[in-house]
Structures are given as C-alpha cells and as structure tokens.
C-alpha cells in the first residue's frame, strides 16, 4: 500500500502534487512567522507620527516612564482634552471610536505592544534617569502609525546595553548584570 503510494509520487502528477504540498507548508510557516512580527490590532489606528510631528513629547501621553515601572497608556480623557477642540473629531470616521468611547463612558482597550514576560520586572524610571531616549528601544515614532516593536526584547539585548553602559564601573556592572535586578 505504502509502496504503491511512493510509486505514484514518482510519476509527474505525483511530483507536482508533492511540490504543491511543499509550497503550501513553506508559505504557511512564512505566514505564521510574519504574523508574529506584526503589531497587534488596536481599537484606533493611532497615528504616532502625526502626534510626534506636532511636537507632542512622548512623556506628555506616557508620563509614567519618568516616574515608575510602567509608562502607561493615556486615558481617553487625555485624548479628549485636545480632541474636543479639534473640528475633525466631530465627523472623522477614524476618530469615531474615540468619540463613542468618551460619550458612552466606556474605556478604549488599547493593546500593549512592547511587552516583556511576567518573570521580567522592567522599570522605565532608571532608564529615563540614565539618559536613554524613548526611541532607542521603541523605534522612531515619527515614521510609524500604530506603534510597532522594532526590537526582539530578549535578555541578550538588555544585557548588551547594560554591560556597555556599566563600562569599567565594577559596582555598576555587578548591579546591572545581577539576575535579581530583573528576575524575582
């Protein structure tokens, strides 16, 4: 039975069939990998580039980055403070979810893009205090619409930067490469 099947595969028709199956599998894998690299779907196609090009600072909407672990995602009240004065908000289809959310009192459910696993305890504050700019990790927001994650946020990526920044300062190096600094 199996012998018969292999003999059939060696015929031209069988070769074409196995070729099609092979191509289907490869494209499924490629599509799967491509899907993991896409930014998640957001309730609003928030154009970061527009806002940044208006000159709005990152820390205006994400002020937690300077104060504590989480940068924070702004509430719709913060969006509305500017947007209720902008005529376009009234009838733009793209801004309709914001208007609906504010008028109905429901929250916009933004999806975090740059995330680390539960066993990693990242704190924004020391990174901002050390003089890191947002775009060094999060990419150039003047070019993207919905936020994307330009980095694979792996431990090697963290440690390379930590070791580079510690330089010859032994105490700093010990602290910055200690497992317990991030994992607890």
């Amino acid at each position: 039975m199996i012998q018969k099947f292999f003999n059939w595969l060696k015929q031209p028709l069988g070769l074409i069939a196995s070729g099609i199956v092979f191509l289907a599998l490869v494209s499924a894998v490629v599509y799967g990998i491509w899907r993991t690299q896409q930014a998640p779907e957001q309730p609003i196609q928030f154009p970061h580039k527009t806002h940044v090009n208006f000159g709005i600072q990152c820390l205006y909407c994400h002020p937690g980055a300077a104060r504590g672990p989480a940068a924070g995602i702004p509430s719709q009240a913060k969006c509305w403070a500017c947007h209720n004065q902008i005529v376009k908000t009234r009838d733009s289809a793209l801004l309709a979810p914001l208007k609906d959310a504010v008028l109905s009192g429901k929250s916009l459910e933004w999806v975090p893009v740059a995330i680390v696993p539960d066993f990693v305890h990242f704190n924004h504050r020391p990174h901002i205090a050390a003089g890191k700019n947002c775009e060094e990790c999060h990419g150039d927001m003047t070019k993207v619409t919905v936020a994307q994650n330009p980095q694979d946020m792996t431990m090697g990526w963290c440690l390379n930067c930590h070791i580079k920044n510690a330089g010859d300062d032994q105490e700093k190096l010990v602290k910055l490469t200690d497992c317990g600094t991030c994992h607890y």
């Binding site: 696993p117 066993f119 010990v174 200690d178 497992c179 317990g180 994992h183």
Partner: peptide, 15 residues
C-alpha cells in the same frame, strides 16, 4: 538559584 553579588541574597530565577 544563584547568589546575587549586588544584594547578597540567594536568588531563585523562575524562568
């Protein structure tokens, strides 16, 4: 389970 040189504690790295 490694020793933290910075904090002098015994760590348990769950991952």
């Amino acid at each position: 389970t490694v020793h933290s040189q910075a904090e002098q504690l015994n760590l348990q790295v769950y991952n």
